[in-house]
Amino acid sequence: MILLASLFALQLSARSVWFMRSIFRGIVVLGGGLGLAGVAAPLVEVGITLSIIVLGLVVAFNTRSPVAAAMGLLGIFALFHGRADGTEMPGGLSSVIYALGFIAGVILLHALGEAFARAIVSIDDGHGPIATRTDCGFTAFSGLGVGAGVL
């Protein structure tokens, strides 16, 4: 998800990366807090599966959208991912310690995902964009398999 989100941001514009990174991190942490607080959220797994399918297709088809719409889409998906992660806290662990680790993990994974996305996008061997878009198409297809319970 983080790699797909980073690739999506990079295909829109260099400026959008900062906005989308901030929105994603903030809302995934908000979702994690909701999960820690035990706030019920319907269809979390469906939202996570849709995030893989939709973002895979968006990158595969090199979809251009207004940055505000892209931020909204990423925000919705980040809320689902954060909510799911927030409910994963092991019993007996301090919620403060878990939250701090969760926030550090989000920042680290997002930085790595963005760095990897930038490395992928910088490949200029004549096949980089096609290979990336094809891989994202396969990612979307695998999301369908996950959603159908096949994978």
Rank of each mutant, 00 (worst) to 15 (best):
F19K: 08
D135I: 12
I48D: 09
T139V: 14
S122W: 01
G126T: 09
A78V: 05
A14W: 00
G91K: 07
A70F: 10
A70V: 11
R118H: 04
V121E: 09
R133H: 08
G126H: 10
G47N: 14
I97S: 10
S22L: 11
V59H: 02
I130Y: 10
S95E: 11
W18Q: 15
G82M: 02
I97E: 09
G26L: 01
L12E: 03
A9P: 11
R133E: 03
A41W: 08
V146M: 14
V44M: 12
A84T: 04
G56A: 07
E45I: 06
A119W: 14
V58R: 12
S65M: 15
L74N: 05
H127W: 13
V46N: 07
S65V: 15
V28Q: 13
A84L: 01
E88L: 09
G113H: 00
T132Q: 12
L73D: 08
C136W: 06
L108K: 06
E114F: 14
A115Q: 10
A70Q: 07
G32D: 11
A78E: 04
A119Q: 13
A60H: 09
L34F: 15
V39Q: 12
T134L: 14
S51G: 10
E45C: 03
V59C: 03
A117R: 00
R83A: 13
L93W: 13
L79G: 06
Q11R: 02
F61W: 15
G113S: 08
S6K: 09
F102S: 08
S65K: 04
F8L: 15
A140K: 00
G72I: 01
L43V: 10
T139D: 01
A40Y: 02
L74W: 00
D85E: 04
A119I: 07
I120A: 13
M89I: 15
I23D: 07
G105F: 05
S122R: 04
N62M: 08
V29H: 03
A117W: 00
G137A: 03
G56S: 02
R25S: 13
A41G: 09
L7W: 02
T139L: 08
S122V: 02
L12M: 08
N62W: 03
L30N: 12
D135N: 11
F102I: 10
R133A: 03
G101N: 02
L151F: 03
A41M: 12
I23A: 15
F80M: 01
L3V: 15
I107F: 02
G72C: 02
D135M: 05
I123P: 04
G92Q: 04
A69D: 04
A69V: 13
S142N: 06
G32W: 13
G56V: 04
L7G: 04
E114D: 14
I123K: 07
F116I: 15
L79Q: 03
A69P: 06
F80A: 04
D125S: 09
A41L: 14
L4I: 09
L4N: 06
E45F: 00
E88Q: 12
A60P: 07
P90H: 02
S6D: 09
G82S: 00
L43I: 05
